[in-house]
Simulated scan of single mutants.
Amino acid sequence: MRIAYLHACEIPSVFANGVHVMRMCDAFADAGHHVTLFAATGTIPADDVHAYYGTRNRFPVHTFGTPRIPVLGRWLRAWRVRRAVHRSGAVDLLYGRDLYALLASTGLAPLVYETHLLRPGRDQRIVERLLLRQRGLRRVVTVTEALAEDYRRTVPRLRRPRGPELVTASDCADLPPAAGPTATLPGRPHTLKVGYVGHLYPGRGIDVILALAASLPDADFHLVGGTDEDLAHWRSRPHPSNAHFHGHHPPSRLHPYYRAFDVVLAPYQRRVACAGGAGDISRWVSPMKLFEYMSYGKAIVASDLPVLREVLTDGANCVLCPPDDVAAWTAAVKRLADDPEARAALGREAERRLRRDYTWRARVDRVLPRPDSAPVRGGG
Rank of each mutant, 00 (worst) to 15 (best):
H7K: 09
A8Y: 14
F15V: 12
F15C: 10
R23K: 15
M24G: 06
A29Q: 08
T36V: 11
F38C: 13
V49D: 10
V49C: 10
N57Q: 15
R68M: 13
R68P: 10
L72H: 13
G73H: 11
R80A: 15
V81K: 07
R82H: 08
R82V: 06
R83C: 09
V85H: 09
H86C: 12
D92H: 14
R97S: 15
L117G: 08
L118Y: 14
D123V: 15
R129E: 13
V141N: 01
V143D: 13
A148Y: 09
V155N: 07
P176V: 04
P177F: 02
P181D: 10
P186H: 01
P189I: 00
H190S: 15
H190M: 12
Y201M: 09
Y201N: 12
G205S: 01
I206F: 10
S215K: 15
H239Q: 12
P240R: 04
F245N: 00
G247K: 03
H249R: 13
P250C: 08
H255T: 12
Y257A: 13
R259G: 00
P267F: 03
P267Q: 04
Y268A: 10
V272F: 09
G277R: 01
M294A: 11
A302R: 07
S303P: 12
V311N: 01
C321W: 07
V333P: 07
E341C: 01
G347A: 07
L354K: 05
R356F: 02
L368G: 03
P369F: 02
D372R: 14
A374K: 00
V376C: 15
R377Y: 11
R377H: 15
